[in-house]
């Protein structure tokens, strides 16, 4: 008697890896993840540092200069640098964007000793420059984190 044609082929059970290699692999993966996280935090704290630690010198320099230029220009235009004491959701959002520039947030506060002046268009542009510096730095830190995890960057 013939066998039924639609009989499913039996899949072979997966071969488990030797127990001795599994914890080692997991430790290695955790270590790499932790290193990537450190790279991301370093990239946020000091613009370009996340890339510099991975010897991506061109990207590190570009991020450092771009974020630095935006901060200097924004502070020079007397843009509004938001604080944690925001009165509404937009001010809080602006604070998080500004905070994205890490240590350069303190630099902007130092440079803008006279305080913001958004009564002119330059001040309004300065506010955007400062916020963009923060968001660009966050993007760069995320890029450095992904590169450290081994993703193609």
């Amino acid at each position: 008697m013939n066998e039924p044609a639609n009989e499913r082929p039996q899949l072979e059970p997966p071969v488990p890896e030797p127990a001795s290699t599994q914890p080692h692999k997991s430790l290695e993966a955790n270590g790499r993840e932790f290193f990537a996280l450190l790279i991301g935090v370093a990239g946020w704290a000091v613009p370009g540092l996340g890339h510099a630690l991975q010897k991506m010198w061109g990207r590190a320099l570009a991020v450092f200069l771009a974020v630095g230029a935006l901060i200097i220009l924004g502070a020079g235009m007397r843009g509004n640098l938001f604080t944690s004491r925001g009165e509404d959701a937009f001010a809080t959002l602006g604070y998080f964007a500004d905070l994205g520039s890490g240590a350069f947030y303190a630099l902007a506060r130092f440079l803008e000793s006279a305080g913001p002046d958004v009564s002119h268009s330059a001040g309004d542009y300065g506010t955007r420059f400062l916020a963009t510096a923060g968001v660009l730095n966050l993007l760069s830190a995320l890029h450095a984190y992904e590169a450290a995890r081994g993703r193609k960057a």
Binding site: A62, A69, L70, A122, F129, S140
Partner: peptide, 17 residues
């Protein structure tokens, strides 16, 4: 001028990243 400066800085950063 502000817009051109903004576009130039961001574009260079985007291109490098």
């Amino acid at each position: 001028q502000s817009m051109l400066l903004f576009a130039l800085i961001i574009s260079l950063a985007f291109g490098t990243l």
